[in-house]
Computed example of a mutant assay.
Amino acid sequence: MRLILWTSAAALGIAAALWAVTVPAPLADAAALPRGDAEAGARVFAAAGCASCHVAPDTEEDGPPVLSGGEAFETAFGTFYAPNISPDAAAGIGDWTDAQIVNAVMHGVSPAGAHYFPSLPYTAYVKARPDDMADMVAYLRTLPASDVPSQPHDLAFPFNQRWLMGFWKPLFLRDYWVVPDSVADDDTLRRGRYLVEALGHCGECHTPRNALGGLRVDAWLTGAENPSGEGRIPGITPAQLDWSAGDIRAYLSSGLTPDYDSAGGSMVAVIDKLAQLPEDDIDAIVAYLKALPEAGQP
């Protein structure tokens, strides 16, 4: 009997410890968000590239984007599908509060208190300013609603266990800048850092990952294997990309390379969204990229 009691107590203690470690931790200040501005939010939405993933595949954009989801992302862990984030109350996020949306985007926590998988790049968005997120939410609420249901992810065990993100997040969900203030030492560079590291989440594709799927910030923006297994995503530090500032600016604005080739793959959608940003933002991104150390993290 004593053995049974001790075993039960130990099991309960382990279960309580696991719950404490893996329980999602929402943003403490999300409930105190300022009132968002939809016009400013359109710029944040473009910089964050939301439509690139959440507009249905093969949709011809004509007018405001319909964020019905459905885009598939193949990875070593399985296939993730972008969900419906339109203002539809049933299929989308129309009945979520502003705080719930910001918690999802910045910390990967659902309204029900479950972890989201990092296919939603909250490891980048955690660095975003809450006022920008509030503006983006205000813009999202102006977009057309869609009643298309979100597709479930196709993940094998154990990668389909959301509670495991409770162990993953402390390792890889960090709100520090990869490039510190000593390198990003003026307003232009800090704006570029904000656009590249936070809103633009460029590291999600251009930085290699470890076996757990976390970004290797010691090799920041030095290139990575394509998650789909097709080809390689290029590095964009000065060591891998010897283009001039003007060349990079032209590419980000038009999609044309210095040798008159054009952007392909997912960069087509990225450049389409960057073209909606003011020239000062493009200049800031270029300045940040040119200021990077030649081999990853400073």
Results as ranks from 00 to 15, higher is better:
residue 2 R to M: 13
residue 9 A to Q: 05
residue 10 A to M: 13
residue 11 A to N: 02
residue 13 G to Q: 13
residue 14 I to H: 02
residue 14 I to E: 01
residue 14 I to A: 06
residue 19 W to E: 06
residue 24 P to R: 11
residue 33 L to H: 12
residue 35 R to F: 06
residue 37 D to L: 10
residue 38 A to L: 03
residue 39 E to I: 13
residue 41 G to Y: 01
residue 41 G to D: 03
residue 44 V to Y: 03
residue 46 A to G: 05
residue 50 C to Y: 06
residue 55 V to Y: 05
residue 61 E to T: 13
residue 64 P to E: 15
residue 65 P to M: 13
residue 68 S to K: 10
residue 69 G to F: 14
residue 69 G to Y: 13
residue 72 A to N: 08
residue 72 A to E: 14
residue 73 F to L: 15
residue 75 T to V: 08
residue 77 F to T: 14
residue 82 A to L: 05
residue 90 A to D: 04
residue 90 A to H: 02
residue 92 G to R: 05
residue 94 G to T: 02
residue 95 D to K: 09
residue 95 D to P: 02
residue 101 I to C: 02
residue 102 V to Y: 04
residue 102 V to F: 05
residue 102 V to A: 06
residue 102 V to E: 03
residue 106 M to I: 01
residue 112 A to L: 11
residue 112 A to C: 00
residue 114 A to H: 10
residue 124 A to K: 07
residue 124 A to I: 11
residue 125 Y to F: 15
residue 125 Y to W: 15
residue 126 V to S: 09
residue 127 K to Y: 09
residue 128 A to M: 15
residue 129 R to H: 15
residue 135 D to N: 13
residue 137 V to M: 11
residue 138 A to E: 09
residue 142 T to S: 09
residue 143 L to N: 06
residue 152 P to T: 02
residue 154 D to N: 09
residue 156 A to P: 05
residue 157 F to R: 10
residue 161 Q to R: 11
residue 161 Q to K: 08
residue 163 W to F: 10
residue 167 F to T: 07
residue 171 L to Q: 15
residue 174 R to L: 08
residue 174 R to H: 06
residue 174 R to A: 05
residue 179 V to S: 03
residue 180 P to Y: 00
residue 181 D to W: 09
residue 183 V to C: 08
residue 186 D to K: 08
residue 186 D to C: 10
residue 189 L to D: 11
residue 189 L to H: 09
residue 190 R to V: 02
residue 192 G to I: 14
residue 192 G to Y: 12
residue 192 G to H: 13
residue 193 R to I: 02
residue 196 V to D: 02
residue 201 H to T: 15
residue 203 G to V: 14
residue 203 G to S: 15
residue 207 T to E: 12
residue 209 R to T: 06
residue 210 N to C: 07
residue 211 A to Y: 10
residue 212 L to P: 06
residue 214 G to F: 07
residue 215 L to S: 12
residue 215 L to D: 07
residue 215 L to E: 11
residue 216 R to L: 15
residue 217 V to A: 13
residue 221 L to H: 01
residue 226 N to E: 04
residue 229 G to A: 03
residue 234 P to H: 05
residue 237 T to V: 13
residue 240 Q to W: 06
residue 241 L to W: 03
residue 241 L to I: 02
residue 242 D to F: 05
residue 242 D to M: 12
residue 245 A to D: 14
residue 247 D to V: 08
residue 247 D to F: 08
residue 250 A to T: 09
residue 253 S to V: 07
residue 257 T to W: 04
residue 257 T to S: 14
residue 261 D to K: 14
residue 261 D to L: 12
residue 263 A to W: 07
residue 263 A to C: 07
residue 264 G to Y: 03
residue 266 S to T: 11
residue 267 M to W: 13
residue 267 M to G: 07
residue 270 V to W: 01
residue 272 D to H: 10
residue 275 A to V: 01
residue 278 P to M: 02
residue 280 D to W: 00
residue 280 D to C: 01
residue 280 D to I: 01
residue 281 D to R: 06
residue 282 I to E: 12
residue 291 A to N: 10
residue 296 G to S: 09
residue 296 G to I: 04
